[in-house]
Design a protein around this nucleic acid. Structure first.
Lengths: 160, 160
DNA sequence: TGCTGATACTTAGCGTACGAAATAAACGAG
DNA sequence: CTCGTTTATTTCGTACGCTAAGTATCAGCA
């Protein structure tokens, strides 16, 4: 079996389907996730003093944008499956950053709400998301920025 | 504490040290690792039929380039710490892809050697590494390619 | 020869990450 | 109103990925 790219078109339909049906992220969450992977250690060292993992911070970013998201909505934004979220949210709840409450209309849904501590952190870590992204584009012309931004989008699956 | 990027210069020296002392990768291994993260599922689906995880494939790439590497040399190329490698190599050995043998000169070192099956896979998965990287740059002009390539290098820590 | 520090690797513990199976709740057709 | 399907979440098992601590070996030096 030859797996060169010229043959990537002939992947079983199901595989392609699964790749394409990935939902578009809302906001800048996934880009940040990508960057946090790229930045690696350096990124963690910013968060360490606050006893936050990158993942915790990403969840907080989502909630700062809109509090009371459902677990699956957070998953959509961060492109994580439910199984992963469960453990992360467990630890965040234990750590006192968020609280889970059941949706009153649809009792299948658990909504995630920021605690007071979670809200406070937004002020302590201001604009970090934007700055992290900007740093990657630092010193680039507008044309270059557009290209890079567009390229990232293409790489992670033709996002809007 | 303000964590905007303008203050990233004032990180404790030790932290900066740790970030900068990351060793440069040999060959294209780390770029591929980066791309495999970006490509995500799609990438795994290529490897699945061969019962390979992306990590297994990366280790194989290193060994195809040079067989009989020490564990720490593989770690350098893939930018992984020893603790991570141990488990991965355990599974690869169990799976019959590689074999660990002690270095005769320096008995602290365990060298990783491809088994027959590991060697065969090189022919089954030809040029995939290069093609994966090329696909990301597909349809770009030379100038754009240079920029993107340069930018990736910058992002992952000023590689050579 | 025996001590000391460096080096290569393993072990342990924690936190992601995924898919698949299980559970619970909502919903639509008859 | 009930049955089967869909949807939201959790649980389970496996595989990274990191740090810190432990073990074995080497290498230099008195």
């Amino acid at each position: 079996m030859n797996l060169t790219l010229s043959e990537s078109q002939s992947l079983p339909p199901q595989s392609l389907q699964r790749w394409q049906e990935v939902k578009a992220p809302h906001g800048i969450g996934y880009r940040i996730k990508l960057l946090s992977q790229l930045m690696g250690r350096q990124f963690q060292e910013y968060l360490e003093p606050h006893d936050l993992t990158p993942f915790h911070w990403l969840v907080l970013c989502c909630l700062w944008e809109q509090d009371g998201l459902a677990t699956c909505e957070v998953g959509d934004r961060l492109r994580q499956v439910g199984g992963t979220l469960t453990g992360v949210l467990d630890r965040m709840e234990e750590r006192g950053l968020v609280q889970r409450r059941r949706d009153l209309q649809d009792r299948r849904i658990w909504r995630i709400w920021l605690t007071e501590e979670g809200q406070k952190l937004e002020e302590i870590l201001p604009n970090y998301a934007t700055n992290l992204y900007e740093k990657a584009l630092e010193g680039r012309s507008d044309a270059e920025r557009r290209l890079l931004s567009e390229w990232i989008d293409q790489m992670i699956g033709n996002l809007s």
